[in-house]
Amino acid sequence: MAEARPGPTYLGPASLLGDRAITPVRVGGRQLILVRDGTRIVAAERACPHEGADLSLGRCAAGRLHCPRHQASFDLRDGSVSPGWSFRALRLSPVAVRPDGLWVSLA
């Protein structure tokens, strides 16, 4: 029998991010950040996979999330790290913007 997969989790109203590009949230015991890149919003793990820096203190520019500690950056489409770094990709989850608010589906 296949393991049941959890459904989407409600994050809050669509205005949750306000005018910020990066907002920390806690979802099901996980520390995540919501990152707005233009009109798209993604959820990402909050700790950098390199040395655990707090990515909520980073910045988002041109489709990339930049780590505040070492300036490595992550592609917000697939989590891949910028050239010259050799550690795993950033874990991302899609965020759906619905009339009733923001929803994330965690793997």
Score class of each variant (00 low, 15 high):
F87W: 14
R20I: 01
I33T: 03
R88D: 04
L34S: 05
G7H: 12
I41N: 04
A47Q: 15
A107R: 15
C67A: 07
A2P: 15
T39A: 13
G63F: 11
G7N: 12
Q71V: 08
I41Q: 03
A47C: 11
A4I: 15
V25Y: 01
I22W: 02
P8F: 10
M1Y: 13
P13I: 11
R36N: 05
G58K: 02
V95D: 00
P6M: 15
L76M: 09
W103P: 09
P24F: 01
S86T: 15
S82H: 12
S56P: 11
R98P: 04
A2H: 13
F74K: 02
R46A: 09
D100K: 06
A2Q: 11
R30V: 04
A47W: 10
G7T: 15
S80V: 14
R30E: 07
G84T: 14
L57N: 09
R5N: 11
T23S: 03
C67V: 05
F74L: 07
A89G: 05
Q31I: 07
T39R: 06
A96H: 02
A4D: 05
T23L: 10
L32K: 07
C48I: 11
A14Q: 11
Q31V: 08
R40W: 09
R20P: 00
A107S: 13
H66A: 04
W103E: 02
W103F: 15
T39G: 04
A72C: 13
W85S: 03
V35P: 00
L102S: 01
L57V: 07
G58E: 02
P6F: 15
G52P: 05
G63K: 10
A44F: 13
G84Q: 09
S80Q: 14
Q31R: 12
E3L: 15
S82F: 13
L65D: 00
G52R: 04
L17C: 02
G29D: 07
A47D: 13
I41F: 08
C60I: 11
A62R: 14
R88Y: 02
R26C: 06
W103H: 14
W85L: 05
G7C: 14
V95W: 02
A2R: 12
Y10E: 01
G18V: 06
L57C: 08
Q31K: 14
V81T: 11
P83G: 06
R69M: 04
A61E: 13
F87C: 06
L11F: 03
G101I: 04
G28D: 08
R64M: 06
A14V: 14
S82A: 13
R26P: 00
V104N: 01
A4H: 12
S93P: 00
G38K: 05
C48D: 12
P8W: 12
G79N: 07
G58Q: 04
P99M: 09
